[in-house]
């Protein structure tokens, strides 16, 4: 299952490869997460990204306050009150691998962000210029800048493993089956089945988190309280920021038209009226 290009950042010519590959997906069933952090460790191990920083204890089991340039997989531990009961939720957080990635749209460097036909969105650090526009374009607040290399990093969905037919490291490490990996269709089917089970068990609001604002994601969730994604640290209705769409779309067209029009108008003026010569003294 080789990696085939689907889209390249800041590139106007067609980039799509010739092979058809299945679209992959990670399923995170929050209802079966026990917060063991095996996925965090596996991610660190496989990607060889040791965390140097330590943080003062904040009253939470959470490893880090947020994702970091060298920490791409974080279980968010959150407390939420629902129906008068305190709920302690654990939900793995990482790059969502959007079908319509805001980071890729915002990126000005050709080939610094790539999207493969299998759905993985990957950062290519050698093409990255460190402008951080991807950080602004991401509706999930995922990409992080390394202060050392001045490049941006995030979860690769283990594209190197997936390319050779292996599952991502976090999936392999999960002991409860909370994390699963397969084709998008398979994972959606499994997620819906699990939602049905949860509803039967009394979680009437259980649902699949596959946000349509970014045309769906290649990491989807089963949320027991699907009406409250914020409780799991997930944005309610994420979409590519309208500024990015405006800036990379109509504004570019209008701006270029205005500028070219200005140059053309100047040329036309020169031909029609010519330069203003100095008056001869009478």
């Amino acid at each position: 299952m080789p990696l085939e290009l689907k889209a390249l950042s800041a590139t106007n010519y067609p980039t799509r490869g010739i092979r058809e590959t299945p679209r992959v997906c990670k399923l995170i069933d929050v209802s079966t997460c026990i917060g063991c952090k095996a996925c965090e460790v596996a991610c660190q191990e496989w990607n060889d990204t040791p965390v140097a920083e330590t943080y003062p204890y904040t009253g939470s089991y959470q490893t880090m306050p947020d994702l970091a340039h060298n920490f791409w997989n974080l279980i968010k531990f959150r407390e939420a009150e629902r129906d008068g009961n305190l709920h302690w939720t654990m939900a793995k957080y990482q790059c969502m691998h959007c079908e319509d990635p805001g980071c890729l749209r915002a990126c000005p460097a050709p080939g610094a962000i790539v999207q493969y036909t299998n759905g993985i969105v990957d950062f290519v650090q050698e093409n990255c210029i460190g402008c951080q526009f991807c950080i602004m374009g991401c509706p999930f607040n995922v990409p992080k800048l390394s202060p050392r290399s001045q490049k941006v990093y995030k979860c690769t969905l283990c594209s190197d493993r997936v390319a050779v037919g292996l599952e991502p490291a976090c999936i392999k490490a999960c002991p409860t089956g909370c994390l699963q990996f397969g084709t998008k269709r398979q994972m959606l089917e499994r997620a819906l089945k699990r939602v049905k089970q949860l509803r039967a068990q009394g979680f009437s609001q259980a649902s699949v988190y596959n946000p349509p604002g970014v045309s769906g994601t290649h990491a989807i969730y089963v949320l027991p309280f699907g009406n409250r994604p914020e409780d799991y640290g997930l944005p309610r209705d994420p979409s590519v920021p309208w500024v990015v769409s405006l800036w990379k779309g109509p504004m570019k067209t209008v701006g270029s038209a205005l500028l070219l029009g200005g140059v053309l108008a100047a040329g036309l003026h020169y031909l029609k009226f010519g330069p203003q010569r100095v008056e001869r003294k009478d």
């Binding site: 950080i135 602004m136 509706p139 607040n141 209705d237 994420p238 920021p241």
Partner: peptide, 13 residues
Amino acid sequence: PQPYSPGASSPGL
């Protein structure tokens, strides 16, 4: 850091 709401939520935008 809170999960972003959609739109121009970042000053950078």
